[in-house]
């Protein structure tokens, strides 16, 4: 399974159930919803779609679609906030 992890040079702040991610290298601002912020925190360590799926279920008691997690990770990769863990 492909693992993803946060890139360095990012800072984050939580404001009213939203997460604001500042990329200090590319000078971008990215806003995530509450569940996105939860996944973002988990991504401080290497995660797979499956591990995030289980973490969400454990924390929220919600069965989140794996496609949605996959799409979320693809977005973060596209915006240069996460990369494949080596």
């Amino acid at each position: 399974m492909v693992q993803f992890v946060q890139k360095k040079n990012v800072a984050q702040i939580e404001v009213e159930n939203e997460w604001i991610i500042l990329d200090t290298e590319q000078y971008t601002v990215t806003r995530l919803n509450d569940l996105g912020g939860f996944c973002w925190q988990k991504l401080r360590e290497a995660q797979t779609v499956d591990s995030l799926y289980k973490a969400i279920d454990l924390e929220y008691g919600v069965e989140c679609e794996k496609d949605a997690i996959d799409h979320f990770l693809a977005d973060l990769t596209k915006y240069g906030l996460i990369s494949h863990a080596v």
Partner: peptide
């Protein structure tokens, strides 16, 4: 467990 709350809401460069 937390309440059921719910995505990348927006992404933009800093000007």
């Amino acid at each position: 467990k937390k309440e059921k709350a719910s995505l990348v809401l927006s992404h933009q460069p800093i000007k």
